[in-house]
């Protein structure tokens, strides 16, 4: 004798509205579920739909990266300069510290939280696999980073048009900058995502990302400059393969997008830079997907 109620009465007999109600409505496919997850992740990267405190860091950094752009626009519009003092791609490179900090600070939100609190298991038990979950997270982070770089770029572009600079020149510059930013966003999202999915403590994750994005870049830049001053040009260019920002600047230089490098990147170095960037980005994505798959099955 376990229950006095006969099974099934709650389903049909609607006596009062407190009984259990079944759901017979539509159920979305995995594509739509992935899109929902992507958009949620994108909003969370900026602290939206999260506590007020979580919005401070991303928007503070975004504001800081917009400020110089706004000043540039003001100067160009008021003084009637015939060109922008910096290219769009060059601007991203010069604000690289802010971009790196945004990535380092926000990647743990998307890649550590669900693993640390083990809510990944609840996702894994749903139609989207935990591997797909990791991949969608990477997409959200990539697009969040891209937006972080594109927004100041667009501000400057609008300012340049207002100042009456040549539209086709500006458009071709803008195009190069956005393409480079897409590649950089994919790479940096992969690196910080992998770091954050391995070191689940937020502090360690942030420090790990800072090491790769800021410290490593500093070391590489130093090596590049020293090699150049010693006359070893190929060492200088070769060293540029070892950090995300030197890859970005190198490719920007090769494409004449106005990024600065100690020694110009040309010849066979160009495909080497592209290849390294793509391989590292792909490796990081595969790594973090494997990580999510593993933790999701525990």
């Amino acid at each position: 004798m376990s229950e006095s109620t006969t099974p099934g009465t709650g389903r049909s007999g609607v006596i009062h509205d407190l009984g259990y109600r079944r759901y017979d409505g539509p159920r979305e496919g995995t594509g739509a579920i992935a899109r929902t997850l992507f958009l949620t992740g994108l909003r969370h990267a900026y602290g939206l739909e999260r506590s007020g405190k979580s919005k401070v860091m991303p928007f503070l950094l975004l504001g800081m990266s917009l400020l110089p752009a706004a000043i540039i626009v003001g100067v160009v519009v008021l003084t009637g300069l015939r060109s922008l003092p910096v290219t769009y791609a060059g601007y991203t490179s010069q604000t690289q510290l802010l971009v790196s900090l945004f990535a380092a600070a926000q990647a743990p939100v998307l890649f550590s939280r669900d693993l640390r609190h083990r809510s990944i298991v609840l996702y894994a038990a749903r139609p989207l696999s935990s591997a797909a979950f990791g991949f969608v997270r990477w997409l959200s982070m990539s697009v969040a980073l891209l937006a972080f770089m594109v927004i100041p770029t667009l501000l400057m572009f609008v300012g340049a048009l207002l100042a009456g600079l040549d539209k086709s020149d500006q458009l071709s510059d803008l195009y190069k900058a956005v393409v480079l930013q897409v590649f950089l966003a994919a790479l940096v999202a992969g690196i910080t995502g992998l770091v954050s999915s391995v070191s689940l403590r937020r502090g360690f994750a942030v420090v790990g990302s800072v090491m790769v994005l800021i410290v490593l870049t500093g070391v590489v830049t130093a090596v590049q400059n020293i090699a150049q001053s010693q006359g070893s040009d190929s060492v200088s260019v070769g060293a540029g393969l070892f950090s995300p920002w030197s890859l970005y600047s190198g490719l920007g230089n090769a494409w004449d997008a106005g990024t600065r490098v100690p020694v110009s990147v040309d010849g066979a170095w160009v495909p080497a830079y592209v290849l390294v960037l793509l391989l590292v980005a792909a490796g990081c994505v595969l790594g973090l997907v494997a990580r999510f798959r593993k933790v999701g099955s525990r």
Binding site: I33, R50, L122
Partner: peptide, 28 residues
């Protein structure tokens, strides 16, 4: 599936979390 161990993010309300999880199962 209700796992045996802790699996709840501490900084989210149950209401928001359950809505999100229902969406992850395909509900609008």
């Amino acid at each position: 599936y209700m796992p045996e161990h802790d699996c709840l993010p501490p900084d989210v309300s149950a209401s928001d979390f359950v809505v999100h999880m229902a969406r992850m199962s395909g509900l609008g």
